[in-house]
Design a binder for these strands. Structure first.
Lengths: 224, 224
DNA sequence: TGCCGTGACTGTACGGTGTAAAGTTCGGAG
DNA sequence: CTCCGAACTTTACACCGTACAGTCACGGCA
């Protein structure tokens, strides 16, 4: 019974690898979130005990580092030679999409002390596109700061919205307000009414703010 | 020995209250962060066993709800009668300051399913100020979305910066880049050089983006 | 062919987490 | 004096990351 070696043909036992672990972890994180992703659960998903992972990664945190870089790699890089506004817009929308696809990553992308190659390449490409577009280094820093604050903030806000579909909105809004007299928060009530209208989708707000910022940057760059 | 009742004069034993718990928790969260704030640790700080807290709060999450509302209460509300741009600017800076004072709260402020009175009052005041400033409800939704995405995103980015003071920046940047050939990320290197210059403080970037957005909003409102 | 090191993985254990459930203590009302 | 209910404690459970030691199969070498 204990000698499984003679019948090893059943399971060829492909060994783990950093790549395979990260790929599976990424999928699992998207499904259950990063908090619910324990080493034991992850090992189970890979057909292995939890401690086996420590032969390929020093800690759970090192796995997260790898995950973040995989996410960065999904973002469309801006091209240096194109129109900076077009490139920045494309990159912003791509980054937002990626963040909404991997909601657990928001708040980790900028914080990792050990950035991976994809993250570094991303930063370099964004700054390079701005510089090629005529921004000096001071203005490029300003522009990068506004844009990324906005993109990450939007993703953060949208991620944390306590509802998803329109029908849920109504329920949550109802719960939120039913305990209070309507007159106490008249403007909030008006806004909720607006958000409940059939055509409204909070996700559409992104383009408005993005274009407002890009236009502002264009104007300031022109003056300077 | 077991009858401590006869010598009860030593410790008058002030009972807990939601207010006292929240106040102490707020201070503790600012010191050690929200993750390190366990029920046991919190009880210890209050001179009580962890389970005693469950007589005043249904769960750890309910404590966090209360905490978030305390944070909202610290934010300066915009006045309905003032110039909307001045009011929005004041409120934005106040919110940023509050978020940097309570870094653990970023990402929780917009997500709570059970908003408190201070949070509702805050939302109502912001929308009210915009409406009084001439924004219709559609534009007010746009404006609120851009502004808060930017403010929360900025706080998130600044919170997560893997360094604090200028000297640390140099070390971290060194670590980040030393493994790579300098030529591979020339623009990133230039930007780090810019950020290392004595006068530079990332916190100053906030005003640039804020004014850019406020000006953009003013322009669009005027056209409309 | 036998041996033995090495790398991949497992088993067990420790101190931590949130919280369910039951037990203790005690001031005040009847 | 009794008894109730509120405030608090004790104990327990299932889970977490990970330190540490053990097991097992395979490749190179005698």
């Amino acid at each position: 019974m204990t000698t499984r070696s003679t019948t090893r043909s059943a399971q060829p036992r492909v060994p783990l690898s950093r790549e395979r672990v990260l790929q599976v972890t990424l999928g699992l994180a998207d499904q259950v979130g990063l908090d619910s992703l324990s080493m034991r659960r992850l090992g189970q998903e890979l057909g292995v005990e939890a401690m086996a992972l420590y032969h390929h990664f020093a800690s759970r945190d090192e796995i997260v580092d790898g995950l973040v870089d995989l996410v960065f790699a999904e973002v469309d890089l801006p091209l240096g030679e194109g129109d900076w506004k077009v490139e920045m817009r494309r990159r912003a929308i791509s980054l937002r999409d990626v963040l909404l696809r991997h909601r657990w990553a928001i708040g980790l992308m900028e914080s990792r002390r050990n950035p991976g190659a994809a993250g570094l390449r991303h930063h370099d490409a964004v700054i390079g596109s701005l510089r090629a577009g005529g921004f000096d280094i001071v203005m490029a820093a300003h522009a990068y700061s506004v844009l990324d604050s906005y993109i990450y903030g939007f993703a953060l806000t949208k991620m944390n919205l306590p509802f998803e579909a329109s029908e849920e909105v109504a329920d949550v809004a109802q719960d939120m307000l039913e305990a209070f007299p309507v007159n106490e928060y008249p403007h909030l009530v008006e806004m909720i009414g607006h958000a409940l209208k059939p055509g409204y989708d909070f996700g559409d707000e992104f383009a408005f703010g993005l274009d407002l910022i890009l236009d502002g940057l264009g104007r300031i760059r022109a003056i300077e």
